[in-house]
Amino acid sequence: MLQFDTIAGLRQQLRSIRSTQSIGLVPTMGALHEGHATLLETARQENEVVVSSVFVNPVQFNNADDLARYPRTLEADYNLLDAAGCDLVFVPSVSEMYADSPLLQLNFGALETTMEGAFRPGHFNGVGIVVAKLFNIIQPDRAYFGQKDLQQVAVIRRLTKDLSFPVELIRCPTVREADGLAMSSRNRNLTATERTQATLLFRALTQAHKMLTGGHTTAQTKNAIKALFESYPAFTLEYVEIANADTLQPADEILAPGQTAICLAAHLGKVRLIDNLVF
Rank of each mutant, 00 (worst) to 15 (best):
D77T: 08
V59R: 05
L104T: 15
S52P: 03
P92K: 11
P58K: 13
Q13A: 14
H33G: 06
A68E: 06
A43D: 13
Q13E: 14
A76W: 00
S53F: 03
S16M: 02
F55D: 07
S93E: 14
M97I: 09
S52Q: 07
D100R: 14
G24C: 11
A76Q: 14
Q105K: 15
P102F: 12
V49W: 01
L14N: 09
D87P: 04
S95E: 15
P71W: 04
E46P: 00
D65C: 00
A84M: 10
A31K: 07
L81T: 03
V54R: 02
Q45H: 13
T28V: 07
L25Y: 04
A37Q: 12
E46A: 08
L32R: 03
L67C: 05
A84C: 10
L14G: 06
S22C: 08
V26H: 09
L25F: 08
L14M: 06
G24T: 02
G35H: 04
R69S: 08
L10G: 08
D100H: 15
Q60H: 07
Y98M: 14
F90D: 08
L25K: 09
I17E: 12
E41H: 06
P92Q: 13
P92F: 04
L104Q: 15
H33N: 11
E48A: 14
I17K: 04
G24Y: 07
S19D: 12
S53V: 06
D77F: 08
R44E: 05
R69M: 07
A43H: 11
R18F: 02
M97E: 12
A43R: 12
V54S: 09
Q45I: 02
G30P: 02
D66L: 03
S53E: 06
V89I: 12
E96G: 09
A99T: 13
D82V: 05
F55V: 03
L39A: 11
D87M: 06
F61S: 05
L32G: 06
Q21H: 14
M29H: 00
N63V: 00
V59E: 07
R72H: 05
L25E: 07
Q60L: 10
D82S: 13
Q21P: 01
S22A: 08
E46F: 00
L104V: 15
